[in-house]
Structures are given as structure tokens and as C-alpha cells.
Amino acid sequence: MSHPRARLDDTIHAPVRFSIMAALAAADEADFRFLRDTVEVSDSALSKQLSTLEGAGYVKVRKTFVGRRPRTFLGLTPHGREAFDRHVEALRDIAAGAGVTPPEPTADRPRPG
């Protein structure tokens, strides 16, 4: 049985990207400022991480205007949602200790000879 660590997604694994994915997983979409405040990062840091997630096909971007104000909405793609669910499942397995082979008992092991 392989360790669940092998199922962790490298793109999602970084803490800020994991937080972004967690925030977007709880919504259909969220605007940039709300996401920035929720994840507690700067505009530039959020933009950078979003580019990575968008490049991986995990996040979709929608730009619109509300009145005269431009707004950017972000949401997970179906692929991103699946990837996040898989990643969380792997984390749960690690937290539960799945895939960890218990050490063999040594004290009572019969000795050869």
C-alpha cells in the first residue's frame, strides 16, 4: 500500500494556494478582494498564486463591471474541485495514519540458531 503522501497535489500543496483552493471550494465564485482578505495575502501574492492555479486549470477567472467598477471573480473549475477533493482526502488519510506500516515487534521475535 502506497503512502497517501504520494496522492498530494504539488500545485495545491503550497500553503497559500491550499488556502485559496479551500476558500474557493466553499463558493461558486468569489471576488478578488474578498479572497485576498480571506486568505490574508497581498494583491500581488494572490495574483501570483492565482496565475499558477489558473495555469494548472484549477481556477477560472471572470472579469466584469458592477456599475463603473471593474470586478474580478474567481472560481474553481470542475477539474480544480476534483483535485482539491483528492488532496484533502490524501491529507485526511495522512492524518488518520493510513498507509503507515506498523513496525514489526522485536522484543518477542524468535532468534535464529
Binding site: F18, S19, A27, T38, L91
Partner: peptide, 14 residues
């Protein structure tokens, strides 16, 4: 720790 952090964020957003 990662799961707890994710839960906190998803609950706030929800």
C-alpha cells in the same frame, strides 16, 4: 494542521 486551516477558511467563506 492543514485540514484545520482549510476547515476554518471554508467555514468563513460559507
Amino acid at each position: 494542521k492543514a485540514l484545520v486551516a482549510a476547515q476554518d477558511i471554508t467555514e468563513r467563506v460559507r
